[in-house]
Each structure stands twice: as C-alpha cells, then as structure tokens.
Amino acid sequence: MSASVVLSSLANGVMLGGLYALVALGLTLIFGVMKIINFAHGALMMWAMYASFWLAKLGGVDPYLSLAVTLPVGFAAGYAIQRAVITPVLEAPEHNQLLMTLGLALFLENLALLAFKADPRTLLVSYSQASVSLGPILLSLPRLLAFAGALAVTLLLFLFLKFTDLGKALRAAAEERDGAALVGIPVRRVYAVAFGIGTACVTAAGAMAVPFFYVSPEVGNTLVITAFVVVVLGGMGSFAGALAGGLLVGVVESLGGLFVHGSLAQIGIFALFILVLLFKPSGLLGAPSA
C-alpha cells in the first residue's frame, strides 16, 4: 500500500470527522445546556438531508445554497420542538425525557418512511465525484467542502457563545439554571434557542452530507450513533471534545476501512470508544465527574 493512499485516506478521514464533529456539537450543546440526551437528533438530521435532497432534485438548488432556507427552518423547528414537547418534561425524571426524545425520533422516522419510502437515494451533484489533489494526497471535493463548512459553523458557534449576550446567557443557564433565572435570563426561551441551534447544526451537517452520502429514513441512526460515540469520547458537554472526538472517529473509520474490510471500519471506532471509557470514563476532554 503506497504512502499516498494512506495519507489520502487519513485526510479524507479528517474531512469526514469534521462533519461528525458538527453533528456531535449540536448534541453536546443540547446536553450541556439542558442535560437532555436528544435521541431525535439523527431523525432531525435525516429530515434536513431530505429537505436538501428534494430541493436539489426538484428545484435544482445546490445543497449549500439550500442552507439559506433549511438553516432558519431547522432552527425554528428545533425551537418549536423544545417549546412543545421538551419543556413539559424538563422537570420530569430522566427516563421520561429519554422516552420523549426517543418517541420523537420514532415519529419522525416513520413519518419519513411514509413520505419517502424506505429506498436509499443518492443525489448526484456536479462535484459529487470530483476530487482535489494536494501533493500526493487526493481529497474528495464534497468531503472537503463539508469539512470547511463544518469548521465554519463551529467557529461561528464558538464566537456566538463567547461574545454575544445571548451566547453568554446560554452558557450561564447551562452552568447554573437558578442563578441565570435570578439575573433575569428567560431560561426557557434560552433553552429553546439551544435546541434550535443544535437542530441548525444537524441541518447544516445534513445539507453538507447529501452530496456524498445516501439518504434514507434510517440514515440518521447510523450517523447519530457515531455522533453519540463522538460526544461521549470527547466528554459530554465539551465543545473542544466534540471537535477532537469527531476528527478522531473520522480518521479511525477511514483508516479502518483501508486496512480492514470497509464494512468492518466501525469496529475500530467502537474499540477506541470502549478503551477510552475504560481508562478515562469522563471522555478525552471532559471534566472528571464528581
């Protein structure tokens, strides 16, 4: 096996990892702020992928352009879901919250099954098969774009949380809910914003995945399980952890596919996952739990 193949595989793994990181970021944001595990995250991503898919297929709109529509819709959907179904269970026991998000996932999946049938579909855009060579490394163009897009979204999110009043309010509500309420932060609205942003993250990830990934009603499960691994690997609620975990998982999957058989690539991820949990249960960048 030549070095350039390995390097290319490594680089493509990093690219894919950027996308995983973005999915994981949305998940970890929602968890970090509300301590709710959003099982519907993958189903929401699947719907975002269908939205971009059909906009491209029927309207001829490039997935990246369709973000102008799907991002605000994704945010609004997340915001509305929070207000309608998550807020009522915020004070409920944890298992009720799990059942709520799981139920939502099942509902969204079956709705997609009804609407689009079970067949996987793929979207061919002009650059689906294109690649860019960087010295000896051959990069898939759609993956490169997704990587750049994921990094851009991550950076924007970071700046938002660090510098805007709303972003600071979000971090405050995540750390100290009563304290936040007592300085006049409308905590429930801020929670809805967090869910909206989390959903916008998967919406972006969905659109950017569509040029090189299939779409089916179950596609969200595949992706979100990987995202769960990333979140736990990086440390629940940690942003840097989601980013590092995403890249690591992307690389392991890509190299695993190269050295072992493609369909066995995921074994590497889960082996890594189990090892990290054994030796650092709080995740790579997570704070040790009390």
Partner: peptide, 17 residues
C-alpha cells in the same frame, strides 16, 4: 450561584441582562 466557568466580568455583564 455564580457562573463558575465564566469570568467575573462575564458574570457582571450578565447581571445587566
């Protein structure tokens, strides 16, 4: 009930939310 990982300045800024 401060926001422990935020800076003192950020805590104060949020006081005027």
């Amino acid at each position: 009930r401060l926001f422990p990982s935020l800076t003192v300045r950020e805590n104060l800024d949020l006081g005027a939310y």
